[in-house]
Nucleic acid binder design. Structure first.
Lengths: 142, 142
DNA sequence: CTGTATCCTACTGGATACTG
DNA sequence: CAGTATCCAGTAGGATACAG
């Protein structure tokens, strides 16, 4: 006797599809630095060294690795300039740019529930509604 | 009591804060099954076995582990009923419920860019605007 | 039914040194 | 400047068996 519920459950159930999408999407971002790297690129292309300075706790090795991952996942475009000194620029692909709403929602959530303490009294909605892209420290810094 | 802004951190720009928030938030969700578990709970409380059936590829061990993580992170509330047979119910905390917009954005994104193929022709905005919570197969199926 | 206890493998992430 | 090559520790994740 076969199940008489939905015979074709795998491809037709929308929630099943959503589940798998969530799984894959979260896996793409699962990496200690992926989120931060992408967020740095939201504002535009960045050089390797700029990213390195913008994310102080990351090592070159890790930055390279995660960057390569993101490239293979189609979230980051890498451009090499044949010059001396060498220059490499990274930028988000359109797919990655579409992630920005996700990041904004996530930041907003973390802002409200980041510590998960039962003590979030002074909540000023006006102050946290907008999320700004990362600052780009110009090279004029000493 | 309000958090005093340290004079030493006078250069604290909002984007720096956002970066750290993203880092922490993604770490909370970094776990092979966390996202799926939470999505299953979006619709309401679920028993251990229900979750297990809803996420076919997860083992008890992993389900237990990730559930404990989520509990310690304050995203899931665990309720044990002293009965035979034993019953344990899991439900999202308010903090986790606030994550729903994030999941919806993420699902929407994965739907559009999940495969990252340059071939997404049949885009029906009307069909993908709404994200449904997971189906709950009732126990009435013998 | 809902777990815990082992054990074990693979992968992630980090330190360091070297290269074009 | 922007990598690559090793090496290595810690941990996440999975199989299996057992228990309340």
């Amino acid at each position: 006797m076969k199940k008489q519920t939905n015979a074709n459950e795998a491809q037709e159930c929308p929630s099943e599809r959503v589940r798998q999408q969530l799984h894959r999407a979260l896996r793409l971002l699962s990496g200690k630095w992926k989120g931060e790297i992408l967020w740095q690129l939201v504002d535009g292309k960045q050089r390797f060294g700029q990213l390195r300075r913008a994310i102080p706790d990351v090592t070159q090795h890790m930055l390279t690795t995660q960057l390569r991952d993101l490239e293979n996942e189609g979230l980051v475009k890498r451009t090499v300039f044949a010059e001396v000194p060498p220059r490499v620029e990274y930028e988000m692909t359109p797919a990655a740019k579409a992630l920005r709403p996700v990041f904004e929602e996530l930041s907003r959530w973390a802002d409200a529930h980041g510590r998960l303490d039962p003590d979030p009294p002074a909540v000023d909605d006006d102050a946290k509604g907008r999320i700004s892209p990362p600052d780009r420290p110009s090279r004029s810094a000493p």
